[in-house]
Amino acid sequence: MKIAVLVSVGRHPVSGTARYSRNDAAALCIALDIARQHGAQLDVLHAGDPASPALAEYLALGATRVEVLNTEGDACAALAGRIAGYDLVMTGTRAEGAFDSGTLPYRIADALNIALVGSAVDIDVKSDGLEVRQFMPKGLRRRVRVSLPALVAVHPLANAAPRFAYARMREGRVAPVAASAPADSERSAWTLGPVTARPKRLAAPEKRSGHARMLCATTTESRGGSVVIEGSSVEKAQVILAYLREHRLVDY
């Protein structure tokens, strides 16, 4: 079995200092356990700047080598080309920036045409594939089976306890590798800047009693609303707009 773990550079929530991503660290911890139990080959990959000091912290968490695809092009295309042929690809659900999209696992799975399982909290390797336990709201969990090759995105609340060892960081190495990738067509539409106040979430005014809200929080019953499956994208957008107008969340 060949396992690839995709890691990113995280940010400290207070100081903003670059550090390892806790989500990716959980994925690495689970992958190390699988590799030890099944004698699998494990490679840790990152696409971006090899000079980031945060990459060395993954060595302290157990990686013997972090391969850095040194490219300024599309990171998804570079990673997808590198990990083609791997049996299991693991990564965190999303990076730790302010407004990270969390779409990288989906884009890579689409590029490789493999199955994707998100919000994983633990993984068991079976003879015919993987059994993954997924995180669900309100404390629920769900077990799903998937055949290999597959990509698994690990939830922040996964059953993993990364252990930092300075000696491992000194023994391992960060290995930059030149990689060619096409320019990211979406990159020109984004601007980078300091984190500002989070946008205010639109929420309909609550009209239920306190008892009704408490019952809703402790049960899995539907809170109402409707699921629109049929119709065009314009008709679905009109349903959403009508809901926003009904609850006075928009003024047009």
Rank of each mutant, 00 (worst) to 15 (best):
A167M: 10
T17N: 11
V228W: 13
V66R: 00
V146Y: 06
S209A: 06
R133A: 03
T191F: 07
R94M: 11
T93K: 15
L55I: 08
L151S: 06
Q134N: 08
V228C: 09
V125K: 14
H12W: 05
Y20V: 03
A80H: 07
G62R: 02
L249D: 05
L112W: 06
D110A: 08
T219V: 04
T191E: 13
L130A: 06
L249I: 06
Y243V: 06
A77V: 15
A40K: 04
I83Y: 04
A51F: 11
A183H: 13
L157D: 03
S52Q: 11
H155G: 01
R36A: 11
S119T: 12
D110H: 12
A204D: 10
V125W: 10
A31D: 08
H155W: 15
P162D: 12
A80W: 03
F99H: 11
E57Y: 00
T219S: 07
S233L: 15
A217C: 11
D124Q: 09
V89F: 05
R11D: 02
A175W: 09
L140R: 06
D122C: 11
A217S: 14
S222Y: 10
I123E: 10
V132A: 02
P176Y: 02
V146R: 03
A25Y: 00
P205C: 01
G92M: 05
A175N: 14
K2C: 03
A204Y: 06
Y252L: 12
L215W: 09
V7K: 05
T64C: 13
C29P: 01
G102P: 10
P137Q: 12
E246N: 12
V152C: 14
D128S: 10
R187Y: 09
G193T: 01
T71S: 14
L192G: 08
Y243D: 01
L6D: 02
V66G: 02
S21L: 06
R65Q: 11
R168M: 13
P149W: 07
L42F: 08
I83K: 05
L61I: 09
P53L: 12
W190D: 07
G193N: 02
A150L: 10
R82F: 02
V195A: 15
E131L: 15
E235A: 15
G172F: 11
F135C: 14
P13S: 02
G16I: 01
G102E: 11
I3M: 00
D184C: 05
A160E: 00
P162N: 12
A56R: 14
G231E: 04
A40M: 08
E171K: 14
L6Q: 00
A197H: 05
Q41H: 13
A98P: 04
V154K: 04
G16C: 07
A78D: 01
H247Y: 13
V146N: 02
G102I: 04
P182A: 03
L215T: 00
P50A: 13
A78S: 10
